[in-house]
Design a protein around this nucleic acid. Structure first.
Lengths: 247, 247
DNA sequence: GTCGCGCTTTGATCTGGATCAAGGCGCGAT
DNA sequence: ATCGCGCCTTGATCCAGATCAAAGCGCGAC
């Protein structure tokens, strides 16, 4: 299952070795794995990393692939997902610049990773990164902290998937995107929503039709405005917040 | 919200300071945070830990409480859950001996923790544990590994909550319990299912009625047998596995 | 330009699981 | 023994969201 039909565009990725300067210039260093490092440590990190650029819709790796690489998103949006044999899909997360992906318990990836928009990533060979982690406990702690906050997000998502209705899910989703944009210093309103209705549906456990109808409902009730270019203006944060919290 | 009506039985917990010998005798040491430690390191750990015993239905802490403690389950079953203001509940996990709880990103717990059965736990003051983690990177790595595998489990659960139907959820749940029992060296068939229908429902995003009906269906189709004492015999692993994987 | 294709929206209908309702059953308290 | 209370099961009905169907509407290829 895991490999079938997914690796098709893998080779199209542009991969170039880079020196330390891009690391220093990296716009997301402060929110990445490397945020914990000093200049000399950064140099050693730059030694092992490779920068990767991918088009929209590129499969970076598939569930079941050998997990020999860890990535850090530096630009664009990625999605992680799991599939059932009959094609049902659950997107387990959207990744923005600063987020990492590629952790695994055994030595295969537990999910597939695909770009939503054109994206750039830093690519760390797992082996060599592990050596680095041994030497730089700060970085180890940083990675641990990032995993912990992912775990907290996963628990929020379980609450959403298990107990919230469609309107509450959409409201939660929009507020989550807005909050994440804010914390990265991007425009938080209108929110940039680069993913398709179908991706949103598979993230929220709904169908595209229900996502579309719910957006329309929220628009009709003036809580949001749908702008062109995949932007959504949040007009009434209070109402959205109440919806999201399920009051 | 977070504190209301939850702390009622907190003080009934029996808490006694113990020396290192219980640590050496600890039946779950090999699968706990402390599995990475040598004898002398273990001694220092024993110095800061406190053993806690609780009755069934005891609230260990509530969402929003100050997160100054980390726990390791040594006996019994715990549940973690999140609530919506109107009372809807999502159980985000059941913990068995060896599992830990109490991680937090900011300094408050992101979920409530309650015992399902009478339970015992090791209690680590966060501050002092952090010091230990600095000195023993092995333990840090161990904790990281445990968090990673929790993250993987959370992603499986998102797939379940977002995309599986009732029968598939119940089958997945039973197999998960069986597998976890196996990995701990307990009886894996029949499986011990100590939690109520209502707990199962809130874990699987269903209602008690649907859980009950689905158990009955599986029983009628001979895939399982419901035994007394909260035991379930898995008669046809093949069918259950196919159901769980959504073939 | 305009053709074609994929994405989105909207409408009509269906259905799995929720909700509402009523016993049954086990067990601890009296 | 039996009362009462919390589960659990089963039945009847309902409904939010899925499914089926059919237009719009960009937008890139030619």
């Amino acid at each position: 299952m895991a490999l079938a039909g997914h690796a098709c565009t893998r080779e199209s990725a542009v991969a170039t070795r880079i020196d330390i300067s891009p690391c220093n210039a990296c716009p997301v260093r402060s929110m990445s794995v490397c945020s914990a490092l000093e200049a000399d440590e950064l140099k050693r990190l730059a030694d092992i990393l490779v920068s990767v650029k991918v088009d929209a819709g590129h499969t970076l790796f598939a569930e079941g692939d050998g997990a020999d690489t860890l990535f850090n998103v530096t630009a664009g949006t990625m999605k992680l997902y799991k599939l059932l044999p009959d094609g049902r899909r659950q997107i387990t997360g959207f990744l923005l610049p600063g987020d990492f992906l590629g952790l695994s318990i055994n030595d295969t990836y537990a999910y597939s990773a695909e770009s939503v928009t054109p994206a750039s990533l830093c690519r760390f060979p797992r082996r060599r990164l592990e050596g680095l982690l041994e030497d730089y406990p700060k970085m180890q702690r940083r990675l641990f902290a990032m995993a912990s906050s992912e775990l907290a997000a996963a628990q929020d998502q379980m609450l959403l998937l298990g107990r919230k209705n469609a309107k509450e899910r959409i409201a939660s989703f929009l507020l989550m995107l807005s909050e994440r944009a804010r914390r990265r210093g991007y425009a938080e309103n209108p929110v940039h929503v680069p993913m398709s209705r179908s991706d949103i549906a598979d993230y929220l456990g709904l169908t595209t039709e229900t996502v579309s109808r719910t957006f329309t409902q929220l628009k009709t009730s003036r809580a949001i405005s749908l702008l062109e270019g995949g932007k959504v203006r949040l007009n009434d944060m209070e109402i959205l917040q109440e919806l999201a919290e399920g009051v």
